[in-house]
């Protein structure tokens, strides 16, 4: 009897919690025709709804499913890095045509599984596969989807440097900053380009760089950003995915500028002046398209650059003066032309 009361209470509680869910549930998935192309997406520990590259990769998958009716997509979210290998194997063992690993941190796992399944196509975002010693590998069935983040970083760096030089910013301490997640190449390349370009425009500018050690908890990035703003940063560049939303929010609260990352983030905060864009969704889409069309490139897949539209920048909520936009265009063209090459290594 006691038991049944407990059940009543638990069920009742569940029902109450579930009320909002009822409104929102729907089912997705159109049936496809033609030879199926099964695509599996394995997220890193950030999960699908990380508001960062896992999310963007998922958008790319959905776009592909929309455009190619024979593409069937599935997702596995990794709860810890222990799940990387089983999740990749899970798709490969089921005869998936393409398995996409999202993120630099899966470099070793992809190499391990790709060697086990030489007939399955793999793609990994932000990295090449790597061996146990961290050396990158060239595997014919793995397509590394690499981006020249430093080029996107450079464009927003130009804006930041010009604004500082113009002296129209709030704090006037000639300081800008970047909030990184964890110090991994894709993050550091963004920041390297940003710093290089800002100092190219305004050699005296002080560029603060901090890491939150996290890609998902916004409070951490917010605290780092607040610290930087406290030290006089007028412009905060977030390079930390979902965590970085906290940095954007900190800038809004303090009334200073912010720069978004990966995707156009002007909707996420008021003071976003631009976003350094990296089209993970496009890369994912193209990788799927390659498999659909039988043009899988493997290790020969070219990097995504300003030149081919794989990276870029998106304007924000603040109208920039014409000399700034002109300068951005100038630098953009120079990079595309190869006359300017932003650095890829960290120098801080």
């Amino acid at each position: 009897m006691k038991r049944s009361r407990l059940q009543f209470v638990v069920i009742g509680a569940l029902l109450l919690l579930l009320v909002p869910a009822l409104a929102a549930c729907g089912s997705g998935g159109n049936s496809s025709s033609g030879p199926k192309v099964k695509v599996g997406l394995v997220t890193d520990t950030g999960g699908l709804n990380d508001k960062g590259f896992n999310h963007l990769a998922y958008v790319g998958l959905q776009n592909a499913m929309h455009d190619f009716s024979n593409v069937v997509g599935s997702v596995k979210e990794s709860k810890s890095d222990a799940d990387y290998i089983p999740n990749l194997q899970g798709f490969a063992s089921q005869g998936y045509n393409l398995v996409i690993a999202v993120g630099f941190l899966m470099a070793q796992a992809v190499a391990t599984v790709a060697k086990q399944y030489p007939n399955v196509h793999f793609a990994i975002i932000d990295s090449t596969p790597s061996d146990a010693n961290g050396n990158s590998l060239t595997l014919p069935n793995v397509e590394p989807l690499l981006f020249h983040e430093q080029e996107a970083g450079a464009l927003v760096g130009v804006i930041a440097g010009m604004l500082e030089k113009g002296g129209t910013t709030k704090l006037k301490k000639n300081t800008i900053s970047a909030v990184g997640g964890v110090s991994i190449p894709p993050v550091d390349k963004y920041i390297a380009g940003y710093k290089w370009a800002a100092q190219m425009e305004d050699p005296g500018v002080n560029v603060l760089v901090g890491y939150s050690q996290d890609f998902s908890d916004p409070t951490k990035c917010k605290a780092v950003a607040n610290s930087q703003i406290g030290l006089g940063s007028d412009i905060v560049f977030q390079v930390a995915g979902g965590c970085g939303l906290g940095a954007l929010q900190a800038a809004d609260t303090a009334g200073v500028y912010s720069i978004g990352v990966d995707t156009d983030q002007k909707a996420d905060a008021q003071n976003v002046i631009a976003s350094a864009v990296k089209r993970v969704e496009v890369a994912t889409y193209l990788a799927i398209k390659d498999v659909v069309n039988g043009h899988f490139q493997g290790a020969n897949e070219p990097a995504f650059t300003l030149q081919n539209g794989g990276v870029g920048f998106a304007p924000g909520n603040i109208t920039l003066s014409s000399d700034i936009t002109a300068e951005v265009t100038k630098v953009e063209n120079a990079i595309k032309a190869g006359t300017l090459t932003p650095p890829t290594q960290r120098s801080w």
Binding site: L17, P20, L48, N49, H55, A269
Partner: peptide, 27 residues
């Protein structure tokens, strides 16, 4: 479990969008 489950379910694994400034508790 229940929040993550509902989060995936309601947003179809996308996650909620960032809350608009007007819907945030103000500073």
């Amino acid at each position: 479990g229940i929040t993550a489950f509902l989060n995936s379910k309601i947003t179809n694994f996308q996650g909620f969008n960032p809350v608009k400034p007007s819907a945030q508790l103000p500073y």
